[in-house]
Amino acid sequence: MNIVINGIHYEVEKNTTILQACRKAGIDIPTLCHDDRLEPFASCRMCLVEIEGSNKLVTSCSTVVKDNMVVYTHSDKIIEARKDVLDLLVGNHPLECLSCDKSGQCKLQDYCYEYGIIESSYNGDRREPYVDTSNPFYDYDARKCILCGLCVRVCDELQCTSAIGFGNRGFDTVVTTPFNEGLINSKCVSCGNCVSVCPVGALTPKVQKYRHWESKEVQTTCSYCGVGCQLNLIVKGDKVVGAQPSKEGPNDGLLCVKGKFAYKFINHPDRIKTPLIKRNGKFEEASWDEAYRLIRRKINGIKEESGSEAFAGLTSARCTNEENYLFQKLFRAVIGTNNIDHCARL
C-alpha cells in the first residue's frame, strides 16, 4: 500500500495503523495511551493526525491505513489540538515536577516541554485527591493520574489478573479496585506491571529516591527463575534503586513481583560476598582461589576412593540455561557421572 506522510511517499503493509507507519518512517507521534502489546484504546487523543479529504481528525493509533491515504502529522491544526489536550491534562494535574519521582522520565512532562505548555490556562476544579498506599511495593496517586488506562489494560490483557479498573465516571474517574477496597484487599499480585507502564508519576514504587538523570540502566537477566526475563536494573552510584522490565527477551516488557521489586538483597549488608570455608566448626571468609583449591582436592580424593558414581550434582532453577549447561558438562565430562539433576524438574 502507498501512503503519503507529510508529503513523502511510503510503502506500507496492509493492516498497519497510521502510527505504526509513522514510526517505521521515523516520524515521532506523541502517544500517552498506546502500547504495542495492547488493544488500541484511543483515550489520550495525543496521536491525532489529519487526513486529506476528511475534515475530521483521527487517532493514528487506532486508524488503519488505506491505499493512497495522505496524512499530515504536524500541521498547525494538529499542533493546536495537541496543545489543547495537554492544556486540559495539566489543568487537572498537580505540576509538582520538583518533587515528583517521575521527573525526567515523565511523558506528560516531555510533551509539555515539546509543545510549550508552561501551565494550564484553566483554573477550575480538580479531581478529588485519592491515594492508595495499601500495597507494600507501590502507591497510586489519583491527582497525578491522566487516566490513560495503560495500567488497567496491562493488568487485564497481559497480566490477566484484572485487579484494577476505572471507578466513578467523567471528571471524577479514577483507577481503583473493586468496591474501592484498596489494592491490598484486591486480587493484585503485586507484579508491578502497572507501575512499569504508567507514563506519569501516578503509580510509583515505594520510596527509592533517585533522580532519573543521576541513574543509569544496566541490562541483566533476572536471577529468580529460569525463564530468563530481561530487566534493566536502575543504578544510582553503586546501589540498585529500581528495576524496569526490558522489552527484549521472553518477558516482552513484563515482570513478576520478584523481578520487579525484590532487588533489595543486592545491596543488603548481610549478603555473602566471598566464599565461606568451615574451619573448626565455623564459617570463615575465604578467597575464590582457596575455595576452588579445596573443592578440587575433595573431588579428587572422593573420586579416587569411591569412583565417579559417588557424585551427584543438583542445580538451581535460578541459574541461567548457560550456567546449567556448563554444570552438567562439568559433571559428565570432568567428573564422569550422569548423576545430574535440577530442582525445576518437579
Binding site: F41, A42, S43, C44, R45, D84, V85, L88, L89, G91, N92, Y122, G124, D125, I146, L147, G149, F166, N168, R169, G170, F171, D172, T173
Partner: peptide, 21 residues
C-alpha cells in the same frame, strides 16, 4: 454532558468540564 461523560478520553472528560465552568 459533564455528568454523563464516561471519562475515557481527555477532550470530553476534561474539556466539557472546563466549558461548563
Amino acid at each position: 454532558t459533564v455528568d454523563e461523560s464516561c471519562g475515557k478520553c481527555v477532550p470530553c472528560r476534561e474539556g466539557t468540564k472546563r466549558l461548563l465552568e
